[in-house]
Design a protein around this nucleic acid. Structure first.
Lengths: 352, 352
DNA sequence: ACGTGCCGTCGAAGCGCTTCGACTATACGT
DNA sequence: ACGTATAGTCGAAGCGCTTCGACGGCACGT
């Protein structure tokens, strides 16, 4: 009734326990004939190696941990895709993926986790520019890789979205549509200051791209709510009435902008173009009009993270993998040719 | 440098290896004094028990698996919350949660995974009315619990959304606003026929609730896309011009409905009320106007699922836990008093 | 005084696997 | 003929823990 052991397989195949192990792992040569006997015995018994025992003896559990931040307002469709992609990749590689919710600064929990020697390595999500967890992992010497990266990822492996490229692409697209006054809508200043990579890198990318295109960058921080989006947008248009396009990193705020624009009598994209940065299809398709967006390859990122980590675990010559994945531009309905801002009807302030 | 073992702790505390174990697990009485010596030794060395060794010896790995469907179009914010809730609950209970992406019918993979005796139990997500995985788990005799439930969950533990109640609440709310012609927008007929519990139970709940309220239920299947939503909506209004309210199970389609309504010149909620069923805040806040919705307590559901499972693992008298959680009505802007359908301007068909 | 408990502790036997050293048999060069 | 590799196999020693049986005390009852 209980699961068959390697011993039973050995007996049934008339070989020593160790020979079964060699046949299973290819650790030492085994003759074709006995290999056959063994594998027949295994399938007769429906044998599956006992993961814990294997792990204990070999010191490789074939389990990796996915560290993900516990309760940011943040986790959305993009993150789900990471996780799914990572889980599938792990499974394909014969690994198990355990989910480990941690606060960014929850270093002691991390330490506990790692010390249990349950996991061979760790995949860290949502890495901040300066991230305690990374420091700790290096110190302990646990193999790890990241989705995202700290400010100086010198000798560490990571896979991340190419935020610089993404903003550059957005600006290029808008410029090509004739826009000359483009505003950038970021997350909140708090997140930016907390060293949230997406926020910081995209901002820098935008500044650079705008300058390179000969434009004056206009940027705004904004809380991650529709309401904040409305308010910031109204302030923005008041301060820069000639803005014709918006590149936004902040999905929730984007919705607010669109609401404010609609309430104020503006049509998108006729009166204002909006491009949503690092935005999943799931979200981009929900608005009216649907958002032209730069969509991250999230599942791919998760996959890469896992494969990089497992590579580190299995190869002996550890090679550094640092990959930046661009987002893909998906054109929907929210961006169009630049209007003449002068001809545009004034935004009628929304009354509460 | 490598992690300290129980043996080293024992030596340092001048006791036998087994005594340390007893002190750690409370398996047998240990005098206050030695307990102290031991715990000091442990913290001196920074000892953490080795999870694999513990699991191998005790036959309880303290790992549970979360089975989640690999690639339905479906996984959204709600599912992410499940997962997060489950992961946190597991952690709080001292368990690890491993993610197992599996196809609903991928029974052989499941078997392989379980046979590895890596996990003490399994939490199954997205259970279908008739679900191969459940059958298998019962057969093998692995402890499991479910988020969702099959058609006859007789003696199995589960936590699920109370779809019947949810639709009843939606109908009651709309009726109270004066609506008498209420349509129900379901997922696709394929999903319904595949025994997707949410779809089947909500449909039944709606029929019942409508009849109980003295209304004639009007229902439509609809693909999970905005486009399908538009088309179904236009057909619906043509067939039932007096419909004034819509209760929708299908978020993507809901967006399509709102787009079609807007394009056709209808205002929501003035010309049409929309209530979104089993819809996360994340999504409901994205539309214009934001959706009045019945929001599932997803994290709670995940937590319950995990706790139920762990209860089964740790108690000796196994008690059956079957919980139905109602959704909570969150009033936003998409539902209002019933208009007079006769006074409503005709829907101008959208041209492509 | 002497059993009879129970408390607190110890040593040893596993849990199911990997891996090391050793051994046999065959194949090779010289 | 001899050493010497190499393929193929075996037995045994762990990996770090739990758990069982045993045993020396000390407090009881009588």
């Amino acid at each position: 009734m209980s699961a068959p052991t390697m011993q039973e397989v050995a007996k049934r195949a008339n070989v020593a326990l160790s020979t079964v192990s060699y046949a299973l792992n290819g650790t030492r040569p085994v003759s074709e004939e006995t290999r056959l006997r063994i594998s027949r015995a295994m399938s007769d018994l429906g044998y599956q190696p006992h993961a814990l025992a294997r792990g204990l003896a070999s010191k490789r559990s074939h389990i990796i941990a996915l560290l993900f931040p516990a309760l940011p307002r943040g986790l959305g469709a993009t993150e789900l895709e990471f996780v799914t992609g990572a889980a599938e990749a792990a499974q394909r590689c014969g690994y198990h993926l355990v989910l480990w919710p941690t606060e960014i600064h929850g270093v002691s929990e991390l330490q506990q986790l790692v010390r249990q020697s349950l996991v061979d390595g760790v995949l860290v999500m949502e890495v901040r520019l300066s991230d305690d967890r990374i420091e700790l992992l290096r110190q302990i010497g646990v193999p790890f890789s990241m989705i995202g990266r700290p400010s100086d990822p010198a000798d560490m492996s990571f896979a991340d979205i190419d935020f610089e490229q993404t903003t550059r692409d957005a600006v290029a697209y808008l410029v090509q549509l004739g826009h000359r006054q483009i505003a950038f809508l970021n997350h909140s200043e708090e997140l930016f200051n907390a060293g949230y990579g997406a926020s910081v890198r995209a901002a820098a990318g935008f500044e650079q791209a705008a300058r390179d295109a000969g434009l004056t960058p206009i940027t705004r921080f904004c809380g991650d709510t529709a309401l904040a989006g409305q308010e910031v947008f109204e302030e923005l248009i008041r301060a820069h009435p000639d803005v014709t396009a918006l590149a936004s990193m902040n999905e929730r705020a984007t919705v607010g902008v669109m609401q404010a624009a609609a309430t104020g009598g503006w049509k998108i994209p006729d009166d204002l173009s909006v491009v949503s940065l690092v935005s999943s299809a799931r979200v981009a398709e929900m608005t009216l009009p649907p958002l032209t967006a730069l969509t991250p390859q999230s599942a791919e990122l998760g996959r890469l993270g896992v494969e990089t980590l497992i590579g580190q675990l299995e190869e002996d010559h550890i090679e550094l993998v640092q990959r930046l994945l661009p987002c893909r531009l998906v054109i929907r309905g929210s961006a169009g040719p630049s209007p003449d801002p002068a001809r545009r009807s004034p935004l009628t302030a929304a009354s509460d």
